[in-house]
Simulated scan of single mutants.
Amino acid sequence: MRVEPYGEGERSGSDPGGRRPEDEPGTGVVAAFGRQLKLLRVRAGLERGEFGTRTGYSAATIASFEQGRRIPAPRFIDQADEVLGAGGVLRALKEEVARAQYPAFFRDMARLEAEAVELHVYDTHLINGLLQTPEYARAVFAMRRPLLDDDTVDQRVAARVARHSIFSQPFLPTLSFVIEESVLRRPIGGWSVTQGQLEQLLLHGHRRNVEIQVMPNDREEHGGLAGPFTLIETRDARRIAYVEVQRNSRLYTERAAVRELEEQYGILRAQALTPRESLTFIEKLLGER
């Protein structure tokens, strides 16, 4: 079985908590971008306050970008490149900076997800990030232990919301989700957050390229007891499986390994409620409060 590790296997030399060097503030591509940004700003003869005014950010935020403490949005990078006359130097780093907003173990998956023509997801603990509202995502990250600082929570929420661009691509991928009933009943963030999340599921469930299915708690037969996973088909017809647990992740590319999970997913879809039944079920949950 061929396995491509993108988590635990890359953590040699990391601290006991599993944080890789490029995740630390002030290091990696974000720090390199910040140093380049400062050099270009100084060369242009602009103080942080003036530069911030021209780009719509405070001087303190500009300082955070330059010191690698905050990850700039793609819009800021485009503006900064133009205002500073960088000639594309900053824009050239935009893709790498965008990837840095994700936890290290998820960065390769984020790239594959954005390029996928098909995604099939089985979730057992949380609503999948592609379907999460910003409020639900914030509640999830705020509960993370060890605690994340406020800036990191903001970055993670922004990164999660940025993934939603998959729904507005010119070429719409085929997306399907099997979600455990217990996930829908878990009031992450309180009822108002949960209500908004369930309403969001209904909206996504009516998209022509999206199918959402609920796995009821009372099913006596269950094909996915080994845990959550995602199946990916890329534009070049590669089929890949992604499995994640406790900040460790794996991308499976060997056909036999992927086929096993494809078989599980097919059984799960057969055992779950149909997409139409699932939307009715979610509407019923909304009506219980």
Rank of each mutant, 00 (worst) to 15 (best):
Q200W: 04
G196W: 03
F167S: 00
A226D: 13
Q169C: 07
Q200M: 07
V178F: 07
T174E: 12
I166L: 14
E181G: 11
E233S: 09
T234N: 08
G223L: 01
G227Y: 04
V183I: 14
G189V: 03
I212G: 05
F171C: 11
G227W: 00
L201Q: 05
V183F: 13
H222I: 12
Q169G: 00
V183Y: 11
S182N: 08
I232F: 11
R208W: 06
V183C: 11
F167P: 10
I179H: 07
V214M: 09
A226T: 15
N209Q: 15
L203K: 13
V183E: 08
V214E: 04
V193C: 10
I179C: 03
G189C: 05
E220C: 04
L175I: 10
T174K: 15
L198D: 00
G189Y: 06
L202A: 06
F167K: 03
V193M: 02
G190R: 03
Q213E: 03
V183K: 12
Q169W: 11
T230H: 13
D218C: 00
R219L: 14
L201K: 06
I188S: 01
L198C: 07
T194K: 11
I188Q: 02
R185Y: 08
I212L: 12
F167Q: 04
I188C: 08
R186Y: 04
F229A: 07
P187G: 00
E211R: 15
V183R: 13
L198S: 01
G196N: 06
S192T: 01
T230V: 15
V193D: 02
L203P: 05
F171A: 14
S168H: 09
D218H: 10
L202M: 07
P216M: 07
L175E: 05
T194V: 02
Q195L: 02
E180I: 12
L231P: 08
E221M: 09
G224I: 01
G227C: 04
N217Y: 10
E233P: 09
